[in-house]
Nucleic acid binder design. Structure first.
Length: 640
DNA sequence: ATAGGGTTAG
C-alpha cells in the first residue's frame, strides 16, 4: 500500500507539473483504506503491543476501524479480532473494538455462523449500548433462525429498561420477523413502535410494510404504504409490488408498477424481480414479455437474480425455449439458476434436456441441492423413468444432500405414476420423516383403480388427521367412492364436509387477453361476456358429442342427475377459459390457460378434441405441469 | 461516535 500510495502521489505531482493526466482507473482505485494508510502510515498492520499502551485513544480507535473495515469475511473478522486481542487494548477501546467487530459481523452475509459469532462478541461486551443490541439483532435476523432469537433479544432489551430501543432497533427486529416470517411478533413490534414514537421513521415504515408483504397480508401492507409520505421511496414501492406478487395478485402488482412510474420513481433490478415473478406466478406470457422488453429498454441490469426470475417466468409461461436462451446467455450461474432451468424443463416434460443439463451441472462442479433434485426426480416421474429416478435418488444420498419432504414426494410420485403401488406404499411407510398430506394424497390417487382398500383406508385416515379442513381431500375421496358407485359413502362425505364447515375451493383458471388477466371459476356467470362464452361452450359440447367422447361425470361431486353433471362439467373453469380464448383470438394464436388445481380428466379429453376440431394449439399450466395440445393429442401423453 | 429497508429456484 505504501508503494502504491507513493506512486500515486508522485504521479499526482507530475500532473501538477504539466505531465499527462494519470489514467482514470487509477484514480478510482483510491480507497478510504489507502487514504487512512497515508494518514497513519506507521499503524497500518504493524502496530505492536508495547506501542498500543502509549498511543492516544483516538489513534487506537482509528486503527481498530481500519483493521475491521478491510475484513471481507467472517474468517478475516476473527483474524482481526485475534490481532486486536494481542494488542491488549485499554478496556474502553476494547469494548469499542468489539462493537465494531459486531457491527461488521451483522453487516456480513446472514449465516448461522455469523449469528453465533455475533452473539459471542455481544456476550463479551460488559455494558452493551443500543448500538450493540441493534447489531446483534441485525445479525440474528436470518431465516435459519426459526426461534426468532432476534425478537427475544429485543424483548430482553425492553425488559432491561436500558438502553432504550431506537428506530434502528425496530427496523432490524422487523427484518428478523419478516425473514421467518412471524406476523404476530411483527404486529407487537408495530404497536410498540407506535407507542415509542418510532413509527414515523422511513426505515421502520418500510420494515413494517415489508413484514406484512412477506406475510401476504396485502391489506395491512397497503395501509402502511398508503400512510407513507407522498414521496415514497424505491424500497417501499418494490416491497409493495413484491407483496402483491407473492400473493398472486398480478393485476394489482402491475397496476402499482405503473403507478410507481407515474410517480416518477424509476424501478431497479430488485423491483423488476418482483414484477417478473408476478408474471411467472400468473402465467401471463404477454405481460412477462412486455416487462422483459421494458427491462431492456430502460437498461436495467439483468443480474443473477433477475436472470433466474426471467428463466422461471418463461418456463412457467410455457415458453421454455426463451427460458433456455436467457439461461445460455448468463455469464454467471448459481445453484438457483441451474435449478430454475432444470425444474422448468421437467415441468414441460422435457426429461432428456433436464437430465442432460443436470449432468453438465455436475461436470462444472456446481453443487446441486435438494431443489435441483426436485427437478431431476420430477423429470423422471413425468416420463416414467423409474430406474433413472431410483439412481438419482441414490446419487442424492451419495452427495450428502438431505432429502426434503418434496424429494420424498417426488419419489412417491415416480413410483405411483409407474404403477408400482406396493413399492410406493412401503417407501412411504419406511420414510424417516412423517409423510405430509401431499404424499398421502398422491398414494390415495394412485390406489384409485386398485383394490387396495388397506392403502385407501390408511391414506384417507392420515389425510383427515393432517388436514381436516382441506376440501380437496373430501372431493378426492368422494370422487373415489363415486367411481365405485358407493353413493352412500359419497353422501357421508358430503355430510362430514358440512359438519366440519368445509367449503370447496373453486378451481380457478385464467387467460390473458390484451394484457389483462381474465379469471374464471366453475359455472362462473360473472364475466361481462358470459353470454358469448356460453354460445362457444354449446358449440364445443356439440363437437365433443359428435367426436364420440363420453363425459366422465364421476368428476362431479354433487349427487345429482347425469344431465346436470354434464352441465357442471361443461362449465369447469378451464373450459370457460379455453372457450374465452376461442372467442377472443384466432389461429395461429396459442390459447394459454393457467389453472390453480389439477386438470380435470374430462376437460383434458375435451381440450384434445378442441385442439383437433378447431385447429388450435392450447397450452394449459395446471398445478403440476404443462399440457400442450396440438392436433388432438397432449404433450403429457395422458401420463399425469 | 459507529449502522439500516425491497429480489431469484420448490
Amino acid at each position: 500500500h505504501h508503494v502504491i500510495n507513493r506512486r500515486h502521489s508522485l504521479s499526482a505531482q507530475a500532473h501538477h507539473a504539466g505531465a499527462p493526466a494519470p489514467p482514470r482507473r487509477e484514480k478510482k482505485r483510491e480507497t478510504p483504506l489507502a487514504l487512512r494508510a497515508s494518514v497513519f502510515p506507521r499503524m497500518h498492520h504493524q502496530l505492536k503491543p508495547p506501542e498500543a499502551a502509549t498511543l492516544p485513544r483516538h489513534l487506537l480507535e482509528a486503527h481498530v476501524v481500519s483493521l475491521v473495515r478491510q475484513c471481507r469475511s467472517l474468517r478475516a473478522l476473527r483474524g482481526a479480532h485475534a490481532r486486536l486481542l494481542r494488542l491488549r487494548l485499554p478496556r474502553l477501546t476494547y469494548a469499542f473494538a468489539l462493537s465494531k467487530l459486531l457491527a461488521s459481523c451483522a453487516a456480513s452475509a446472514p449465516t448461522a455462523a455469523a449469528a453465533s459469532y455475533a452473539r459471542s462478541l455481544f456476550d463479551q461486551i460488559p455494558e452493551p449500548t443500543a448500538f450493540c443490541y441493534n447489531s446483534l439483532i441485525r445479525a440474528l435476523a436470518t431465516p435459519s433462525n426459526p426461534t426468532t432469537d432476534a425478537f427475544l433479544l429485543y424483548r430482553r432489551m425492553l425488559r432491561a429498561g436500558s438502553p432504550s430501543p431506537n428506530s434502528f432497533t425496530v427496523a432490524f427486529a422487523l427484518k428478523a420477523c419478516a425473514a421467518v416470517p412471524a406476523l404476530g411478533k411483527g404486529r407487537q413490534l408495530h404497536s410498540q413502535a407506535f407507542r415509542q414514537g418510532l413509527e414515523p421513521s422511513p426505515y421502520v415504515q418500510t420494515g413494517l410494510l415489508n413484514l406484512y408483504a412477506r406475510c401476504e397480508e396485502v391489506a395491512l401492507a397497503r395501509s402502511v404504504f398508503d400512510g407513507m409520505a407522498e414521496d415514497k421511496n424505491l424500497v417501499a414501492w418494490s416491497s409493495m409490488i413484491g407483496g402483491y406478487s407473492r400473493a398472486g395478485m398480478v393485476n394489482e402488482a402491475l397496476d402499482l408498477f405503473r403507478d410507481m412510474q407515474a410517480a416518477g420513481v424509476s424501478p431497479d433490478e430488485v423491483t423488476m424481480v418482483s414484477v417478473i415473478s408476478a408474471c411467472a406466478k400468473a402465467g401471463a406470457l404477454d405481460l412477462g414479455r412486455w416487462v422483459h422488453a421494458f427491462i431492456d429498454r430502460k437498461g436495467i441490469m439483468v443480474d443473477l437474480e433477475l436472470s433466474t426470475a426471467l428463466i422461471d417466468m418463461y418456463a412457467k409461461c410455457g415458453l421454455i425455449e426463451r427460458a433456455r436462451l436467457v439461461f445460455d446467455a448468463m455469464v454467471e450461474r448459481d445453484t438457483k439458476a441451474w435449478s430454475a432451468m432444470i425444474v422448468g424443463l421437467a415441468m414441460h416434460g422435457l426429461a432428456e434436456d433436464a437430465l442432460g443439463l443436470f449432468s453438465r451441472m455436475l461436470q462444472l462442479k456446481i453443487r446441486p441441492n435438494n431443489v435441483t433434485f426436485i427437478g431431476v426426480l420430477s423429470a423422471c416421474a413425468h416420463n416414467g423413468l423409474v430406474d433413472d429416478g431410483r439412481r438419482y435418488w441414490s446419487t442424492m444420498q451419495e452427495m450428502g444432500i438431505k432429502a426434503s419432504m418434496e424429494n420424498y414426494g417426488c419419489m412417491v410420485d415416480l413410483l405411483c405414476r409407474s404403477g408400482l403401488l406396493d413399492e410406493a406404499y412401503s417407501f412411504v411407510t419406511s420414510m424417516p420423516i412423517l409423510p405430509n398430506s401431499v404424499i398421502w394424497r398422491n398414494l390415495l390417487v394412485a390406489s384409485k383403480s386398485s383394490n387396495r382398500t388397506d392403502i385407501v383406508g390408511l391414506a384417507s385416515k392420515k389425510l383427515f388427521e393432517l388436514e381436516p379442513q382441506n376440501p380437496e381431500n373430501y372431493v378426492l375421496l368422494s370422487n373415489l367412492y363415486a367411481l365405485n358407485s358407493q353413493w352412500d359413502r359419497v353422501r357421508y362425505m358430503r355430510k362430514k364436509m358440512k359438519d366440519n364447515n368445509v367449503t370447496v375451493v373453486a378451481g380457478c383458471s385464467s387467460i390473458e387477453i390484451n394484457g389483462y388477466l381474465h379469471k374464471f371459476v366453475v359455472s362462473d356467470g360473472s364475466h361481462p361476456e358470459i353470454k358469448e362464452i356460453r354460445v362457444v361452450l354449446r358449440e364445443i359440447a356439440d363437437r365433443v358429442l359428435r367426436s364420440g367422447h363420453k363425459p366422465w361425470t364421476a368428476a362431479v361431486l354433487h349427487d345429482v342427475g347425469e344431465e346436470e353433471k354434464e352441465i357442471a362439467l361443461c362449465e369447469h373453469s378451464e373450459r370457460l377459459a379455453i372457450a374465452y380464448g376461442l372467442l377472443k383470438t384466432k389461429a395461429p394464436h396459442v390459447i394459454r390457460v393457467v389453472k390453480n388445481l389439477r386438470f380435470c380428466p374430462d376437460c383434458h379429453e375435451v381440450a384434445k378434441i378442441i385442439s383437433k376440431s378447431y385447429g388450435r394449439e392450447i397450452i394449459v399450466r395446471d398445478r403440476v405441469r404443462f399440457h400442450r395440445f396440438i392436433g388432438g393429442s397432449c404433450s403429457c401423453n395422458d401420463f399425469w
